[in-house]
Design a protein around this nucleic acid. Structure first.
Length: 410
RNA sequence: CGGAGUGUAGCUCAGUUGGCUAGAGCAUCUGGUUUGGGACCAGAGGGUCGAAGGUUCAAGUCCUUUCACUCCGACCA
């Protein structure tokens, strides 16, 4: 992508209505734009990062056996009355249609997915089943905050699993933990599993995936001896319930959450199956959520410095920022050629070919946008058939021959 | 939803006890000079002072209402 063609621009000054680091940097760098509190547009750079996160999520969900679907965001009142949740979910956005018809914008999808899967699953031979979608969720948060971390419209991957018995459910649930850890690791986040309240669905705990950072809004107690993590909401005393060791508390961002749903929804929708003996048995369910948009915000919260974002390679919108300081047409031509060559080879390059910007502006913008590698091409480097290469995460600058660049980028 | 704060140019902000034609920096446009860490000079364009109502000879400034945004709390992925 030629930066001169990118319709967004970077901003030198911090927006006054954003306090969180993720929103400040993502807005300044031209990744997102705020429409209203908790609702953001994804600009070209931001959309690329978001899509990369979603791709990582998809890979792991598919690996886990999940089948991707896309359910409607617009849902009828009737399905929520089946479970008694029409008036219970107070963050639900509700809409009035013609003829007294009422709708809700999806804040979660158990009421859609359970009758959906019920249509196709009748026998123990049809189980287990896991389906997922990646969609925008709508929740009328009483207080949207912290940029992408708590929005009113946000990207969510929600997976639902259906099982014939407890053993099968547990097996899948444990596998899902590993899939989640894989996702966060690939996204450059160091997440831990914390036990949390199971909510109204189960007596068991649910499990949260937490990334430690001072800007998090959850408090996690961690045992220094056995490594157990627990959300402060279920910690009654500051002593490890598992080994009795001392616990320390830290702030963290919840980037994922998995729940045993047991038969809460299958019972409500009359979803059962026939076992080998032809007997009707209840279907056990689990649900598993990750917010890709929140993950994106979390990545920025954890990976930045005073100059800007430091994207992990896996989720960076482009992997190389080719910064041209060339002025003469012969030099510009060489820079253009390098951009085209790299792009043809499959390297994702953002090419700063802007004519008006000074070297200082280009360097500052490059640090702000935070692509993993910066390659500078200038009259100086061209005099030696070279470019300068630098990692965003390091101060080390190297001059290398242009023909050696390939081996350094792959 | 309770408490607090902020709304003035695209962005960040000044604007005194109410007083002349509402300002600066950045950004944008024109011309010139610069050219490896957010340059410089000269000029130009850009405003329903969040909105509505009120007080006053006169309101960005005072009063009332309202909307938006932010923070703390409660709630929550």
């Amino acid at each position: 992508m030629r930066q001169s063609k990118l319709f967004t621009k970077t901003a030198k000054e911090t927006p006054k209505d954003e306090v969180s680091i993720n929103a400040q940097l993502l807005i300044r760098a031209g990744f997102i734009d705020k429409l209203m509190a908790g609702v953001y547009t994804y600009l070209p750079l931001g959309l690329r990062s978001l899509e990369k996160i979603k791709k990582i999520v998809r890979e792991e969900m598919n690996q886990l056996g999940g089948q991707e679907i896309l359910m409607p965001a617009l849902t009828p009142k009737e399905i929520w009355e089946v479970t008694g949740r029409w008036d219970k979910i107070d963050v639900a956005f509700k809409l009035d249609g013609d003829g007294g018809k009422q709708y809700s914008l999806g804040s979660t999808h158990e009421e859609v997915v359970t009758p959906l899967v019920k249509k196709f699953v009748k026998s123990y031979k049809d189980l287990p089943v896991a389906v997922y979608q990646i969609q925008d969720k709508f929740r009328n948060e009483p207080r949207a905050k912290s940029g992408l971390l708590r929005g009113r419209e946000f990207s969510m991957k929600d997976l639902y699993s259906f099982h014939k018995d407890e053993e099968d459910f547990s097996d899948f649930y444990e596998k899902s933990k590993q899939a989640y850890l894989n996702i966060f690791e690939k996204c450059g986040l160091n997440a831990v599993i914390a036990e949390a309240d199971g909510g109204v669905f189960t007596d068991k705990y649910s499990h949260e995936f937490q990334v430690f950072t001072e800007n998090g809004e959850d408090i996690i107690f961690s045992c220094e001896t056995c490594g157990l993590h627990r959300n402060s909401e279920i910690v009654k005393e500051e002593k490890c319930p598992q080994c009795g060791g001392g616990m320390v508390k830290n702030k963290a961002i919840e980037v994922g959450n998995i729940f045993p749903l047991e038969t809460r929804f299958s019972d409500a929708f009359g979803f059962s199956y026939l076992d080998k003996d032809g007997k009707e048995q209840p279907v056990l369910m689990g649900c598993y959520g990750i917010g890709p948009s929140r993950v994106m915000g979390s990545i920025v919260e954890v990976n930045h410095d005073e100059k800007g974002i430091i994207w992990p390679e896996s989720v960076a919108p482009y992997s190389v920022h080719l910064v041209s300081l060339c002025k003469e047409s012969a030099d510009i031509k060489k820079a253009d050629e390098l951009y085209e060559t790299l792009t043809k080879q499959g390297v994702e390059v953002l090419y700063d070919d802007r004519e008006g910007a000074t070297a200082g502006q280009k360097f500052a913008d490059s640090d702000l946008v935070g692509l993993p590698k910066r390659v500078v091409i200038s009259p100086k480097t061209l005099a030696e058939d070279s470019v300068e290469i630098k990692e965003r995460s390091s101060d080390k600058v190297e001059i290398i021959k242009i023909k050696e660049l390939n081996s350094r980028l792959f």
